[in-house]
Write a protein that binds this DNA or RNA. Structure first.
Lengths: 340, 340
DNA sequence: TATTTTTAGTTAAACGTTTAACTAATATTA
DNA sequence: TAATATTAGTTAAACGTTTAACTAAAAATA
């Protein structure tokens, strides 16, 4: 049988209350007693029962982690890394993470994950864009919510954001510094605030360098970011502008599609066209040539989200604080200085 | 405040015991009372507290899902799909799934996931190969274990297995039927039972067709299944045997590496070489040409694992029953009949 | 010295369930 | 009809914690 607080109390020859107080670092217990109790805890390999604890304290020790099925299954392990960061941090802080996916077309009345219905969570992390209706149906549970890489239209939630503007600037400036003038932006899912910001960074960098980019260099649509979409968009781009020498693709999958199109049409990377992606996933290294990209600290985003959430749960923070994680330019072989 | 069993009892004008019995489908309660109680439950949107339940029943309602970090982060969402299947089935059966990763070099004494240390799980699912030391350190918790796609050396656990032999045969027979004679097998991680079985299926199919495959057609090593490894192995193959016309690669990532090598060396797929993979992940469709492959029912593997585990937990099954999921040949464009 | 304050604990109630043991009412049997 | 069995519930203890309220002993103060 697993040891209970009673066993510890008996072993240390104190009351169960004392054991509980030691566990919670209450300063009312003398160092001597504290040591005695801690020794007993270690000897018996005692771990408090979550059930008993939850029953009296009305806290579950669970953090929900919600992501759309689509995003979770994405070929690039972007959000799996975010999850990993969250799980590590939660483990550290004595919380469990309950991962559940929802449909990206979630409608009001659709079944919610069990732990939500059963109110078995202290707070919830939502990773990536989800339907507003989903967030709405969470409201009545009155638990803190932290969003990752997503700002819903009505805003007002604490979130962990990527410095997308900076990323867009870094990518574009890298191309400008290499002497490029006709720099294109290719981005799907343009309604996503993050993609819009990357475009904004792109524009800011061009402005700063006094480059007036002519028509047809910005190709966007609102389809899901994917290889196919990148391939298609590259086609549209090259139909209009044969003079393009550099492309900034708003995420990695798009970049791979763009690369495929360029290869299929007899151009060479980076000889004819330089290409920069966004995200930095392993696949970037395996493709030919390895992709220059903007690195996003994925694991850190997960840990930050948990920290933010726990700060709110412990009243250390009001519920509108947000964190912005920084990005970094990773230069590989898909970009080079323009031929004179 | 969330409703408790007392609120339901008051609303239905019965004792709390009656409510509990109704929830557990005890036949001692009349249909009339049962209806009355169920109505109250629905009206109040009552869900029993896991904490209270766990405290008295000594069951947690949690299923652990363990996977090595390496496998979880793999570019192909193979195990994420398996997890998804497990989560769906668990949700259905009123269980939570606690996902945690371990290091693939887990050693005795390394920290275990929190829910294990705290004994907060009724059973555990291990997805993919893990170090034997990890399984050993689980033993003392005396909870049922179900393995997915892995048989440890000392065996003895219920598991969900892929019909790898059948898969190997299907792939190889497909190539044989297309007229190929010099059919190679490329497989990394050969110490993995699943890969060995795929090789066995390959051999069986050749035997059945009375094809004596000469030297150098089987290229294996014990490195992790990956693109680079596939690329390298293909190099070794073509150095020895220029006459190969078809290749069965033991998983998808390997196949992609092989494909890359073939392209880089001026051969065409499927014109010069036919190629079959194993796993069927989305990426197979996006590569050029789309890959003929053996489809593995990934989601089903997850649901089966949960079913197996719950059967054991409910004493419906002894703890050595295993399930084998079936595979299917998916013909795409990477294979074709041999040129006469 | 007598009183008050502080220290270092202990006692006991409460949290929301499950379930064995009990009971009152009704049905069956001798 | 009296005794027994069945039905449809109810009562109450138990699960393992937390924590407010209490207390005995020691220290500080008047």
């Amino acid at each position: 049988m697993r040891p209970t607080i009673k066993d510890v109390a008996k072993a240390a020859n104190v009351s169960i209350a004392t054991v509980s107080l030691v566990i919670h670092n209450n300063e009312r217990i003398s160092t001597k007693t504290r040591k005695k109790v801690l020794r007993a805890i270690k000897e018996l390999n005692y771990h408090p029962s979550r059930s008993a604890r939850g029953l009296v304290s009305h806290q579950t020790g669970n953090i929900g982690f919600i992501i759309t099925e689509e995003r979770f299954l994405r070929t690039e392990p972007f959000y799996t890394r975010v999850f990993l960061g969250a799980e590590f941090e939660a483990r550290e802080k004595d919380y469990y993470v309950l991962l559940a996916t929802i449909d990206s077309s979630f409608k009001e009345g659709d079944p919610l994950p069990r732990f939500i219905l059963e109110r078995n969570f202290d707070g919830i992390i939502i990773a990536g864009k989800v339907p507003t209706t989903f967030i709405d149906s969470l409201l009545k549970y009155k638990r803190p919510i932290v969003l990752i890489d997503f700002i819903p239209p009505d805003g007002g939630y604490p979130n962990v954001l990527i410095n997308n503007i900076k990323g867009g600037m870094l990518a574009t400036e890298h191309l400008i510094n290499a002497g490029h003038k006709n720099i294109a932006f290719i981005g799907g899912e343009i309604s996503h605030p993050s993609i819009m910001e990357r475009l904004r960074g792109y524009n800011l960098a061009l402005e700063k360098a006094n480059i007036r980019n002519g028509d047809g260099l910005i190709v966007t649509n609102d389809e899901y970011l994917s290889r196919q979409n990148g391939y298609k968009s590259a086609g549209r781009l090259f139909n209009n502008r044969k003079d393009v020498t550099a492309i900034f693709a708003s995420n990695n999958a798009t970049a791979v599609g763009v690369m495929q199109y360029i290869k299929d049409n007899g151009y060479k990377i980076p000889d004819d066209v330089s290409l920069v992606g966004f995200d930095d996933v392993e696949a970037d290294l395996l493709i030919d040539p390895p992709l220059t990209t903007i690195r996003v600290p994925k694991v850190e985003m997960g840990t930050e989200a948990v920290r933010l959430l726990l700060d709110i749960l412990n009243n250390k923070s009001n519920s509108t604080k947000s964190t912005v994680v920084q990005v970094e330019l990773i230069i590989r072989e898909s970009t080079r200085a323009i031929k004179k």
